[in-house]
């Protein structure tokens, strides 16, 4: 199908975007790469009155080295990360994730910030950036605030963004050389949305042992202390054999995840992530 008619403006700056976003009398949507919004527009599920293209705002394609973290603009694409145009301070974690999102033509336009704002629970960045402990930098004319990515996504297609806010970028902590990670997503076909995601990150130099269970049809489960998933054990090479299925079941209960398929896949996704993390 073809989209319904809408107005389109390309914002030249953040303040320009803000004045466009403040327009009343209709439904206004921000447009980054459009790789999730485009299909919804074509299917006429989304029928905005105005699209604001934010990809020309300089801050949104900036990459700033903040010492212990890297701040990437919201309109950095998946392929920018996959190809290494964004410096890899993350032991290859983000490059692996980026390279397995959808298909190359989609990755050439789809953006990190767009994916977060769209908040499809099955998308990769919500889980991967929560695992690594990244913060979203939210901008509005009222000021700038940061929100942990795990708190940005509230539930399916629902974020903590206010109506006048946009995601300016993402602050991603750099991993130490000793960091080990695993990230596994269940897909029946390369490039499709994940059926379940498991992620494990151990960075002893920074005292980090985190885990994520994502693509569970609602916001991911993020553990800043992953030990309860492994019977209270600290990270070691045998971690994959100590997965506590009951602990996972309780966490899924807490999110009201009742789908048997997801409940079956979750411990396996986590185990495969743990195997990758402990083998690397």
């Amino acid at each position: 199908m073809k989209p319904v008619a809408f107005d389109y403006e390309r914002a030249a700056s953040l303040s320009d975007a803000a004045s466009l976003l403040a327009r009343t009398g209709g439904f206004v949507k921000l447009l980054a790469g459009g790789q999730s919004l485009g299909p919804m527009l074509n299917l006429r599920l989304a029928q905005p009155d105005l699209l604001i293209d934010i990809t020309s705002i300089p801050e949104l394609t900036a990459i700033i080295d903040g010492g212990d973290h890297l701040e990437i603009g919201a309109c950095v694409t998946h392929s920018d990360i996959e190809d290494g145009r964004v410096p890899d301070h993350f032991g290859g974690l983000l490059r692996q994730v980026a390279g397995r999102i959808a298909y190359r033509p989609v990755r050439n336009r789809g953006t990190v910030g767009g994916s977060l704002a769209h908040a499809d629970p099955a998308a990769d960045w919500i889980s991967a950036l929560s695992l690594i402990g990244a913060d979203a930098v939210l901008w509005s004319q009222r000021g700038v605030r940061t929100v942990a990515v795990e708190n940005l996504v509230v539930s399916s297609f629902t974020t903590a963004l206010a109506a006048d806010e946009l995601i300016r970028g993402v602050r991603i902590p750099k991993l130490s050389p000793a960091a080990r990670w695993g990230f596994f997503k269940f897909s029946q076909k390369a490039g499709e949305f994940a059926h379940t995601i498991g992620g494990v990150l151990h960075d002893p130099a920074r005292g980090v042992f985190r885990a994520v269970l994502g693509a569970i049809e609602t916001a991911p489960i993020v553990l800043a202390d992953a030990r309860p998933l492994f019977g209270g054990s600290a990270f070691d090479s045998g971690i994959a054999n100590r997965i506590d299925r009951e602990a996972i079941a309780r966490l899924l209960d807490g999110k009201n995840v009742t789908d048997d398929y997801i409940r079956s896949l979750a411990p396996v996704a986590l185990k495969r992530a743990a195997i990758q993390a402990s083998a690397s």
């Binding site: 030249a12 029928q47 009155d49 990459i63 309109c75 694409t77 920018d80 145009r85 789809g110």
Partner: peptide, 27 residues
């Protein structure tokens, strides 16, 4: 050869700041 950001996205030819914009007509 490429920069950062969505392929094919280019800054506007004329960079202009918008002031308060009128309300949308809506459908």
């Amino acid at each position: 050869v490429r920069g950062i950001g969505p392929a094919g996205s280019h800054p506007p030819a004329v960079h202009k700041e918008r002031g308060a914009a009128p309300a949308l007509s809506g459908r």
